[in-house]
Amino acid sequence: MREILGWRRGLRFRRKRRTERGTAVAPLEAALRCATVWDWPVLPGAGLRAVVAPKAKGAKGAKGDAGARARRAAPAAPASAACACPDPRCVVPGAHPFDPGLLAATTDARMIRWWWSARPDAPVLLATGGRAPCAVSLPAVAGARALAALDALGMRLGPVVATPTRWAILVAPYSLERLGELLYTKDSVPASLRFHGEGGYLPLPPSVIGSGQVRWERAPLEGSARPWLPDVEAVVDALVEASTSTPGGGSRLAY
């Protein structure tokens, strides 16, 4: 197990060097790989729009006019980013389906190329469940603790997706009934745990969403026909324990 994890870390370091050399994977390439190599249905996320800070009014007179001209000539830098959807209070900016809706998720390469030709920077969303992976996500600090605990147990893990605020462990598809039976046996389940099953979705690398860059904390092995996935039963105990024991990770829902 340690050799496999070390190899994965090496892959991440090599991928980082490729990114620094300007050959980072584009969203279209990532979406096509998910759909055509791994048979995971994907669709573009809502994406982000820039929120530009209002310009300060220039003083009157020659100097004021010159200052105004200089400000108009300089490019406006976004003060922040908001979701491109119509909801001004969107809690997951950029990281959810909007147009098209979730039911449009597909493995059709022609449709995927058409979507990303129109919106090349759109986030890549995985439609979870069915023949695609499911996932369990939790706040980032608790996620790091859970992975350390699973490694200590010698647990074999598949891909792990990370954002600055949350980590998600991809697991084999499960039904809502099966998940309900599993959680019923627990004394308590932290509200910060989120389960991405049938009818759910998850942003995948190299998407950029409101919380920041999406990356692989544990990347799929290079050359694999389809990434291996653990059963949800194998990981949920460690995730519940990590969320409960992490300050702020038990009851607070961190997006």
Rank of each mutant, 00 (worst) to 15 (best):
G249S: 09
L253M: 12
Y184V: 02
A234N: 03
P78Y: 07
K63T: 14
G6C: 06
A95V: 10
L193K: 02
T185P: 00
P164V: 06
G158N: 06
C134H: 07
G61W: 08
E177I: 03
R12I: 09
P123R: 08
W38N: 08
D237G: 11
V160K: 02
I4V: 14
G199K: 05
Q213S: 11
L182F: 02
W40P: 10
L157D: 00
V171R: 00
A53G: 05
A73D: 12
V236K: 00
G210Y: 05
R15K: 11
A135R: 02
A79I: 02
M155S: 15
A66Q: 13
W115F: 14
R21H: 10
G158R: 01
R113K: 15
T107W: 02
E233F: 01
D121K: 10
L229M: 12
V161M: 06
L221E: 14
G64N: 07
G64D: 05
D187A: 06
A62W: 12
G212Q: 10
A148K: 11
D237L: 05
R166T: 10
D39G: 13
L43F: 05
A74K: 15
V51D: 13
R69H: 09
E20A: 14
V136K: 00
F98S: 14
A105Y: 02
A81T: 07
T36L: 10
E222F: 09
A132D: 05
L229A: 07
W167Y: 13
Y255G: 02
G212N: 09
V51P: 01
S192Q: 03
A152L: 11
T107D: 03
S188H: 00
Y255I: 12
G197P: 01
V92D: 11
R194S: 14
A70V: 06
K55M: 12
R226K: 12
V124S: 10
P173C: 11
A152D: 08
L157K: 00
S175L: 10
D121R: 13
G61K: 08
A135F: 01
L176Y: 04
P247G: 08
D231R: 13
D151Q: 08
P41W: 04
L221P: 01
V141T: 15
T19R: 14
P190L: 02
V42L: 09
A62P: 04
G94N: 08
T107R: 12
V25L: 15
R89D: 14
G6P: 01
V92A: 15
P173M: 09
A127E: 05
R17Y: 04
P190I: 00
R215C: 07
R178Q: 14
T128Y: 03
G250S: 15
P159I: 03
G61L: 09
V236A: 00
